[in-house]
Write a protein that binds this DNA or RNA. Structure first.
Lengths: 166, 166
DNA sequence: TGTATTTACATAGGCGCCTAACTAATATCA
DNA sequence: TGATATTAGTTAGGCGCCTATGTAAATACA
C-alpha cells in the first residue's frame, strides 16, 4: 500500500515540500553571507542584479522584469533604501514614477558578492548534474501551467471533461 | 551569449522562481476552495490529514510528521482552533503537552474536501507525465542536500577543495 | 532532596511573497 | 474642457514558513 499512501500526498504535499526546500536554500545562502559578515536579504538580489546590469529602473519595470508584483518590489525597494543600497529619484517624464538605482554602497556590495554568486552558479550546475535539471523542469512546468492553469486542471479532474465552469 | 546570461541566474533565481511557483499553486488551489464556498488555508491540510489518518497528536508529533518547526505547527493549530476545526485537550501524561484532534466540524470538512484532494492527485500524476517527475526530483534533491548541504557546497565552490571551514 | 538540564509549547518578530484598497498622476474620450 | 478610465506606487493585512526567546514542566544527576 506504499503506492496508495504516496498517492494520498499530491500537490498539497508538493507545495509544502517546495516551500521548505526554498527556505533551506535561503538559509544556507544566508549562512554564507553571514560568514562574510554581510547583511543580505535574498529578495535584494533580483533588484540589485537588474539595476546593476540594466541600469536605473522604475518599480513597475522591476516588477515586470522579476515577475513579481509591484507591492513586492515596493517593499523590497524600501528595505534596500533603508540599507542604503539604492536610491530613488523622481522621473521628470512622469511625476508618479521613481527611478531606482544602486547607490555607491550598493555597487560596492554587488561587486563584493559577485564571487559568492559565481560559486552558487557552480553549485547549481553541480546539482543539475547530480540530481536533475531543475531549471529545465521549472521552465517546463511554467510553460505547462501557462498553457493550462492548475485551477483549470483541478476543476477538470473534479467535474469531468464537460462539466464545471468553462 | 544566451548561455552565459542564463548562467548568471543560479540558485538565487531558482529560489525566487520556486517561491512563485508555490504561490501560484496555492492560489489556484484556493480558487477551487472558494468555488466550493469553503474557507481553507493550505497549511491546514498537513495537520488535518495527519489527525484524520493517525488520530490525536501533540504539537511536537505534528512538527515531526510534517517536517516543520513547532512554532509553525503552533500557529497553524491556533488558526485551526479559531476556525473550529480542531480542539485541544491536555495530556494527562505530560502537563506541558496538548493533544490535538479534529472536531466534528473538522471531520466533516475533511470528508467534504476529499474529492478535491483526489482531483489534485490526478492533476499531479498528469503533470508528472506531461512535464517531469516532480516528486522524484524532490526526493533526489532532498537526499543530495542531506548528504551535502547547499551551504557546504557553496563554501567549497568559493574556497576550493581544501579551503574554508571544515 | 535540590539543582541543573532538557523538553513542550507559545509568542514575537521577520522574510518573501500575495491581494485589496487607496491616493495621485496621466491618458483617453466625448 | 471636463469626466472617466487607466496607470504608478504605497500601505495594510495576511499566508506560511523561519529563528529567538520565554515560561513551565519533566528528567537527570549529585
Amino acid at each position: 500500500m506504499a503506492t496508495d499512501h504516496t498517492r494520498k500526498r499530491g500537490p498539497l504535499a508538493i507545495g509544502g515540500r517546495l516551500r521548505r526546500l526554498v527556505e533551506r536554500m535561503d538559509q544556507d545562502a544566508g549562512r554564507v553571507y553571514a560568514d562574510l559578515g554581510v547583511v543580505f536579504e535574498q529578495r535584494w538580489w533580483g533588484v540589485m542584479e537588474h539595476l546593476a546590469e540594466q541600469g536605473p529602473a522604475s518599480v513597475a519595470e522591476l516588477a515586470r522584469a522579476l515577475g513579481i508584483t509591484q507591492p513586492s518590489v515596493s517593499q523590497t525597494r524600501r528595505s534596500l533604501e533603508v540599507a542604503g543600497l539604492i536610491q530613488a529619484q523622481s522621473d521628470p517624464r512622469d511625476a508618479r514614477s521613481r527611478r531606482l538605482d544602486l547607490s555607491d554602497q550598493g555597487r560596492a556590495l554587488y561587486r563584493q558578492l559577485a564571487p559568492v554568486w559565481a560559486a552558487m552558479d557552480v553549485v547549481a550546475v553541480e546539482l543539475n548534474a547530480e540530481v536533475a535539471d531543475v531549471m529545465s523542469m521549472l521552465d517546463s512546468l511554467d510553460a505547462a501551467l501557462a498553457r493550462t492553469s492548475l485551477y483549470e486542471r483541478i476543476r477538470r479532474a473534479m467535474d469531468g471533461p464537460q462539466g464545471g465552469k468553462g
